[in-house]
Nucleic acid binder design. Structure first.
Lengths: 177, 177
DNA sequence: TTTTTATGTCAGACATGTTGACATATAATG
DNA sequence: CATTATATGTCAACATGTCTGACATAAAAA
């Protein structure tokens, strides 16, 4: 145990490390607040479906799979791997469970029969719906509260946070209409 | 690997489940795009410090601890637990390492001597800085690209995503100036 | 004095991620 | 056709970060 007399108190003062620029420039403080906001928002956002998942014996990985397959019916395993950024072994485990328990359907590609095209069964669609219920409500409420202009800004910034190298491709994948 | 050939597959047709409402109402599609955007943005956002952490033998948990202690010097273990939403056993492991290796300092509270007030050492501050370097650059670039109005919208929506019960308190914690 | 609180610790379990190796079917290429 | 590359699956071992449950200590609060 390092034992040193308590240095500072709770509320804290900022570290002035010389990042404060002219009034309309971006301050380090402003950036850091944006970072923390993202942390808290995401923390609460993903907390919604967790309890429901437990009832199925599933985890967040299952939720992600069900979500993206639901959004992109007919997608290949490779595509899903690229989105999730995990190894095929990791995906394999959850995918196997979801297929065996009848939430996801695999079918051979017609052009390339090595591929396994993924889609939700009716049961899978139900699961996806109920898992995303609270999340959709949360986002919907935040959207309504903040108004259309805020929504635009929110989207713009989030888009800007995505790796530039993949941004365009991802945006194409996101937008369905 | 991220670029697969079959061009007929990727874009994918949406399921028209009759959720499109009047023009200025929030469509289910709009909500779902907001959800995916959050996923991708967060995914890339947290990917930044990962490599650097490996060099220290640390993980994301360490980063979160160093971040929040850096932002809130003198905070108690309880406060940190509430923010991270993990158990004291989970926190215990990473905190122990960070203290033993001289990144974080613990000191007894002066009012309540049961408390262990947490703060960064110089070494810890350095670590925090270099870990958040890329993240701050990422947010900074996105902010600059999108402009001041978008920043306002971004913040408004993220604030709205935080649990209402804790929103006010969290916002107080975030804002240091 | 007794109870509650803040913190720490041990032990065991589970979910999810990793590497590495290898297998199979199919497509693509020389 | 023979060879090579690709898409996928699987086995095994291991790391990390989470959890629950039990128990301990010191100090504050009642």
């Amino acid at each position: 145990m390092s034992d040193i007399k308590n240095p500072d108190r709770l509320p804290v003062r900022p570290e002035l490390d010389g990042s404060d620029k002219s009034p309309d420039d971006l301050s380090d403080e402003e950036i850091r607040e944006g970072i923390e906001l993202l942390f808290y928002a995401y923390r609460d956002f993903i907390s919604d479906p967790d309890e429901m998942l437990k009832e199925y014996g599933f985890g967040r990985a299952h939720h992600r799979v069900v979500h993206f397959v639901g959004r992109n019916p007919g997608m290949t395993v490779s595509e899903l791997l690229a989105i999730l950024r995990i190894t095929k072994q990791s995906l394999g485990r959850v995918l196997k469970q979801l297929v065996e328990q009848g939430f996801i359907l695999q079918s051979s590609g017609s052009l390339d029969r090595r591929q396994r095209l993924l889609s939700l069964t009716d049961k899978g669609r139900e699961l996806e719906q109920s898992l995303s219920d609270l999340q959709r409500k949360r986002v919907s409420d935040a959207y309504r509260l903040a108004g259309p202009d805020a929504i635009k800004g929110y989207r713009k910034i989030l888009e800007g946070l995505i790796n530039t190298s993949e941004r365009e491709e991802i945006l194409k994948t996101i937008k369905k209409r």
